[in-house]
Simulated assay, not measured.
Amino acid sequence: MVNLKARDDAALGRFWAAVLDWVVFHEGPGSTALGPAGFAWPDPDALCLDVVAVPDPEAVRGRVRLDLAAASATHQAELVARLVASGAKRVGGGDEPWTTLTDPEGNVFRVRRETDRDTGPIAAVVVGCADPRAMARFWGTAMAWTTHEARDDRARLRAATGIGPYLEFVPDPLVTRNRFHLDLTPSPRADHPAEVARLRTLGAADADIGQGAVPWAVLADPEGNRFCVLTR
Rank of each mutant, 00 (worst) to 15 (best):
M1S: 04
L4D: 05
G13Y: 02
R14Q: 14
W16I: 01
W16H: 12
A17Q: 09
V19W: 04
V19C: 10
L20T: 00
W22K: 11
W22E: 13
V24T: 15
H26R: 14
H26E: 11
G28N: 12
G28C: 10
G30P: 05
S31V: 14
A33Y: 02
A33V: 09
P36V: 08
A37Y: 04
A37P: 02
A37F: 04
G38I: 09
W41K: 14
P42W: 01
D43W: 06
P44Q: 08
D45E: 12
D45S: 12
C48Y: 09
V51Y: 06
A53H: 03
P57M: 10
V60I: 06
G62R: 01
V64G: 01
D67S: 14
D67G: 07
S72H: 11
T74E: 15
T74Q: 12
H75Y: 01
A77I: 01
A77Q: 14
E78I: 08
V80F: 14
A81M: 05
A81Q: 15
R82A: 15
R82G: 10
L83T: 10
V84R: 12
A85T: 13
G87Q: 06
G87T: 12
A88H: 08
R90L: 15
G92T: 13
D95H: 15
E96Y: 06
P97I: 13
T99W: 10
L101T: 10
L101A: 13
P104I: 15
N107Y: 09
V108P: 11
R110K: 11
R112C: 15
D116R: 13
R117W: 04
G120T: 14
P121F: 08
I122W: 02
V125Q: 06
V126C: 05
V127H: 04
C129N: 10
D131H: 12
R133D: 03
R133L: 04
M135K: 05
A136I: 03
A136R: 05
R137N: 07
T141D: 06
A142T: 03
M143I: 00
T147L: 02
H148V: 04
E149W: 05
R151Y: 07
D152M: 01
D153W: 14
R154E: 12
A155W: 02
R158A: 09
R158H: 06
A160M: 04
T161K: 14
G164L: 11
L167Q: 01
V170H: 11
P173Y: 10
P173N: 12
H181L: 12
H181G: 04
H181M: 07
L182G: 03
D183C: 01
L184H: 00
L184Q: 04
T185H: 00
S187W: 08
S187Y: 07
R189M: 03
R189P: 00
D191R: 08
P193W: 06
A197C: 05
L199V: 15
R200S: 06
D208F: 11
Q211F: 03
A213E: 10
W216Q: 00
D221R: 09
P222F: 07
N225A: 09
N225I: 05
C228T: 03
